[in-house]
Each structure stands twice: as structure tokens, then as C-alpha cells.
Design a protein around this nucleic acid. Structure first.
Lengths: 344, 344
DNA sequence: CAGGGATAAGAAATCGTATTCTCAAATCCG
DNA sequence: CGGATTTGAGAATACGATTTCTTATCCCTG
């Protein structure tokens, strides 16, 4: 195909440099070149030097494909999530955590955007990744395919399984801490603003958080406000909370997005945050700090979750049959301007 | 290495399924299997059926590595950006645009997180991607390496080059449109709030936008306020703008982040937005809509830029020597609550 | 000086797929 | 019915690097 048509004499042609070429230039065999580059073989230092020098001059880099073919490993791991369903802020932090760990191991990190229910991403199907981090949502198709080819997986911030390594956050404890803090400030009528989401995972998480809310209210000996059934539009459930005979003075929202919408809705009803109502979100989005008032929130350690997941995955790559692990990280309560003592 | 230790009799072992295995089961040669799977060869329909059936039953998928090795293409393209320097919101939208186009082509998309000035990412070095989308910032090392191995590149929302395909936005025109709109509302003292950023690309973009501002003010016959020299801390330049004898009644900010910080700063000085001062940002971050007041902004068509870049890259992959192209997309002005007529 | 062990480097196999080359059988047509 | 052509399928090779197997050379020692 005239692919290596080295028509001109300059040695810096873009055509691919192979160990074979280096071998010819160095006057040795191809295998010797490979040994020189790999190290750990017995080669005369002079020969090795000559080879390395030529390789350097030609800007040689091994073909990833060839190496992957022979070694059976691609030194690449995939990070999967359902894009569009999660603020990219959050996912990117997980991704960076994963990247940080694997970059140090010389591995590449790549994002798999799961396309809804469609085909298993090519990277997995064609064994182009050695392991998988599944974020935010269990992709059952991906999971079972990975299992069928024996590819290690770790779930990060997704509903845990008995079979796979997992990293999750303590939703129950986190929400409880938020409620406790509000109670400490003197709030007695504290409500939980649920998600509207139809997707099953958000519902699960939402139920966890609702449970945290209810438990905390109970242990604080406070009467709980009704928790909207999953699927109820936010504005509806917010509306009914505000229409209660005893209007809540503090709202813990399912996440920061909903907290933002809530603050806006309160504003439109001439309710001032935090003078009339305190609001707490969950996630600590980038923007939360810049809202007016700045948003109090449960910071989920996204990046750390990525790091933890990557570490679990790395360990499993080294030792495929080690016992399954489940790490639980704790969120941290960040109090900003959207929270104050209740009105007198 | 006992890798294919098929000790039990079940055929659904996780060990890798190869064309060779299928060939043995079907009683044909490996090449015949390859032909059957590829199509376009003359095979007896019965033979092909048998082979395909076995392949399906064994859940066969070709090894990406082997295929890449022989074809010289990985059907994978890399999207690079300097992570941490850009809100992930924006980058992710570009990424999704790129993904959309290449997914339809059967290609995989992977993110290269450029690690500052360090090594060229492995994916590129080892020729694991067939093309490159460079976003937000020209990575000169990456670029020159790509050029040296003849890998197609496209710049998206990065300072354009003469050699590479580019997609940019009309910063000058966009800011001019914002200024024009403010002027139309009756504003006469309109200022531009510059970036504090030390990174050279932001400065370049900032200069473009400043130019748009100055041109628009000139063409509206309005006196321009001083534009801070690059590198000045935002709060400093904002401070001096507000200290002007004739305080501006409208501020066009370098981006939404700065607009948020600006609004917060104004709020702290008891200046009400938009009653006392109108504010416009650029980027249309997710959160901008939820601010109080919601932020007026120049929406940059991030996703479309990704799509446009991907299309340019795809075309170049088909036809490597086609003339270089440069597409310029226009931002769209979104007016929300942060803009109003100037105070009487 | 002969033989044993270490050392250096070439030869060859391997990984899994795609493709070209080659040959046998089947088909066609006059 | 016999030679020409088409068709089906196996054999062989290439892709580029790793690794094992072999061989040739050298040095040391008894």
C-alpha cells in the first residue's frame, strides 16, 4: 500500500518506526533490539547503547497494539457512566481520582459513555481495557459482559453488589449529620426535599437519604415531615411542604441542583434564605459556593472515591482472587450562608 | 501460562474466543472463519451460516489489539484538554459532541488528560488513537508529536493555527452583540471585567473579548471604560471600575465564573443586580440559570463545536490531504434576570 | 589444553486477525 | 464431452513486539 514509501532520504519520516528498522540500522537482529529496549537481558553494554541511541534518534515508540496483542494487557482501564444523567462536575472528579492513581501505574484511563441500553461499548467488547470503573449507576449489561470475559470491575458510588468491589458514601449518616446540625441551631421543623427522578438509582440513593433523615429526626425526638413518594415533581412536593400548617424552617434537599431550584422557588414566594428558611444541599457542585446565598451542602468526596475505587481495582488486577472489598467514605458537612438559626 | 486451561467441559469459559477455535469447531480453516465474519468473500452460504452460528454461540468478538495491529487503525480518537483549567461542564459538552459523531462511525472516543508539561499521553505515543481533538488549549508537545507521526488533529476552541483544522467561536462578535444589547437598553457606561488568569490561552481569548468590547463601544459611540491589563486580580479590576467617578451601569464579564464572583462582590457592596448594575457572563454554565438573579450570558455552542470538530477530523481521516478548514461558530446571547435597563 | 559454564546475540514461535495466493472442485459452453 | 472459467476454501504471510530456544564465542579452571 505504499505505506512505508520512504522516498526521501531524511530519516525523520512520519512512517512508523519499528524494532526491525532499528535492528537493520544497528546491524543486529530484531530480537536483540527488543531485548535492549526491555532491559534485563544480557547484552554487551556497547551494543545496547548503540541500539538505544538509534531508537532515540528515530523517536521510536513501541506499537501499543502489538504489545497489547502479545502481552494480553492493554494497560488501559475504562471509566463508565451514564452521561447526561449526572452533573459532569461530579463524574469528572471521580475520573480525575481514578486517573491520578492509574497514571502513576503507567496505565491509561478512558471514559466509556454508556449509550443508554444500547451495545456494550466497543472498548470492553474488544478487550481494549483491562479493568472497569463503573460510576453512579450499575450498567447491568456492561457488568455481565465484563464478568463473562473475566474483566475486573469496581463500582463507585453505585448501588453495591455482593460480587464486586465497591466504593460508596454514607448517605444515611451524612444526612443525619446535616439534620443534627440544623437541630442544634434550634430548628424543629426540618423537612426533606426528595428527587423527582424516574431513574431507579437516584431513587435508591434518595431512599437512603430519606432514611437518614427519618432516623435523625427520630433520634433528635423531632416530628418528621412527610417525605414525598419517589417520582413526585420537586415543585409539587416542595409546595405541599410549604403549605403545611407548621411550615418547615429548614430543608434538606436531595442534592445541590434541587437545592438551587428550591432556593429559587422560595425566593419567588418571598421567603428569604436563610432568614425564613435554611437550605442544605448535597454534592458541593462548583457553583454552590457562588450562589447568593452560598449553599450549605454535604460535600461528597468525589475525587477520593475515584482514588479509592482505582486502588481497589489495581489491587484486584494484581491479585484477581482476593476477597471482595467495600469501602464507605463519609461526606463532610459544609456550612455556608444558606443556613442560619430559625426565625424567632 | 495455563491461560486457556479449559479444564471443564462447558464451552462458555471466560478464556478468549478466537477465530482459530471457531475454525476447529466448524471444521474449517481460520482464514475461512475470518472471511465469513468479514463478508464480501465468496463462501458457500451454508458454511458461512454454520460459522456465524458458532461465533454467536461462543459470543465471539474480535480482539481489538490484533485488528489494530493488522489494520494499522484503532478506530479510536482521543480528546485532549488540560483538566483543571476549564470547568468540566464545558469540556464535557464538547466531548459529547465529538462522541456523538464518532459513535455513529463506529469509533471509540477517549479522553486524554494532559498532565501539564509532562509526557505526551501514552495513547498518542503508542499510536492507540487515530486522531486527536485538542480542546481549549494548544498542547504544543502533543501537537508536534502528532504531527511527527502524521496523526490528524483538530483544534476546538483553542487559538487557531495555519496548519491544523480549527473550530472557534466568534468572541469579538459575541461580546459586541452583548454590548449592543446593553446599549439598546439605554446603558451608556458599560465596562468589561477581565480575567485574572495567568495562563496564556485565557489571556488570548480575553484579549479577543476585550477587543470585541472596545470595537462595540466605538461603533455605539460610547466612551469605553478602561480594560484591566491581563493578570490583574478580578476583584482589583472590579474595584477600580466601581470606583470610577461615573460608575458603570453594566458589566460584561470574561466568563460566567467571573460573573458569579462579580455579582457576589456587588451584593456585598449593597449594589443590586440588575437594579443598580446589569451583569452579563459568557459560557452558559449549568448553574447560571439557577443563580439569583439568573445570569444573562453568551451561550457558546459547546456541543456543536464538538460536533463540528469531529466532522472536520472525520473528513480528514478519509482524505488526509484535503485543504485545511476553519469553522467559526457564533455564540448566542441569552438574556435572563441579571440584565435590566439602567437606573434612572 | 580440554571441558564446563557464563555470556552475547541470532533464530524462531507466539499473540489473533486480515488478506493474498494457490489449488481443487464445480460449473459452463460450444 | 472436454477445455475454460468460476467458485469455495485451505495455506501462507503480514502486522510489531515479546519471549523462549539455540547456537556461537569467550573465559576460567583443573
Amino acid at each position: 500500500m505504499a505505506k512505508n514509501k520512504n522516498t526521501n532520504s531524511l530519516s525523520s519520516m512520519p512512517s512508523t518506526v519499528t524494532t526491525q528498522m532499528i535492528a537493520e540500522l544497528a546491524g543486529v537482529s530484531q530480537s536483540t533490539v527488543s531485548k535492549a529496549l526491555a532491559g534485563g537481558y544480557s547484552l554487551r553494554p556497547k551494543t545496547r547503547q548503540r541500539i538505544l541511541e538509534i531508537a532515540r534518534r528515530l523517536n521510536y515508540h513501541p506499537s501499543g497494539a502489538a504489545r497489547a496483542l502479545v502481552s494480553g494487557r492493554n494497560e488501559c482501564i475504562g471509566v463508565s457512566y451514564m452521561h447526561g444523567r449526572v452533573p459532569s462536575d461530579l463524574f469528572n472528579q471521580i475520573l480525575e481520582g481514578v486517573h491520578e492513581v492509574f497514571f502513576a501505574c503507567g496505565y491509561t484511563t478512558t471514559t466509556l459513555m454508556a449509550e443508554g441500553e444500547t451495545a456494550v461499548p466497543r472498548l470492553v467488547r474488544d478487550r481494549l481495557v483491562d479493568g472497569l470503573v463503573i460510576g453512579f449507576e450499575r450498567d447491568r449489561e456492561l457488568e455481565s459482559f465484563a464478568a463473562s470475559v473475566g474483566m475486573p470491575c469496581v463500582l463507585v458510588n453505585a448501588p453495591p453488589t455482593e460480587e464486586l468491589d465497591c466504593v460508596t458514601t454514607d448517605n444515611v449518616g451524612g444526612v443525619a449529620a446535616a439534620v443534627a446540625h440544623l437541630a442544634e441551631l434550634g430548628h424543629r421543623r426540618i423537612a426533606y426535599v426528595s428527587t423527582w427522578s424516574h431513574d431507579p438509582v437516584s431513587r435508591l440513593v434518595c431512599q437512603d437519604r430519606a432514611r437518614g433523615y427519618l432516623q435523625a429526626m427520630a433520634s433528635q425526638q423531632l416530628p418528621a415531615c412527610p417525605v414525598a413518594s419517589p417520582g413526585t415533581p420537586v415543585m409539587d412536593s416542595l409546595g405541599s411542604l410549604l403549605a403545611l400548617p407548621q411550615r418547615p424552617t429548614a430543608l434538606v434537599c436531595f442534592n445541590d441542583e434541587i437545592a438551587m431550584m428550591t432556593i429559587k422557588a422560595l425566593f419567588q414566594r418571598s421567603l428569604h434564605v436563610p432568614r425564613d428558611v435554611s437550605v442544605v444541599g448535597i454534592d458541593n457542585l462548583f457553583a454552590s459556593e457562588y450562589m447568593i446565598p452560598s449553599l450549605s451542602t454535604l460535600e461528597i468526596p468525589w475525587r477520593q472515591m475515584g482514588v479509592a475505587g482505582a486502588e481497589l481495582l489495581w489491587q484486584r488486577l494484581q491479585e484477581p482472587h482476593r476477597p471482595r472489598q467495600h469501602k464507605v467514605l463519609s461526606p463532610r458537612l459544609i456550612i455556608r450562608e444558606s443556613v442560619a438559626s430559625p426565625p424567632a
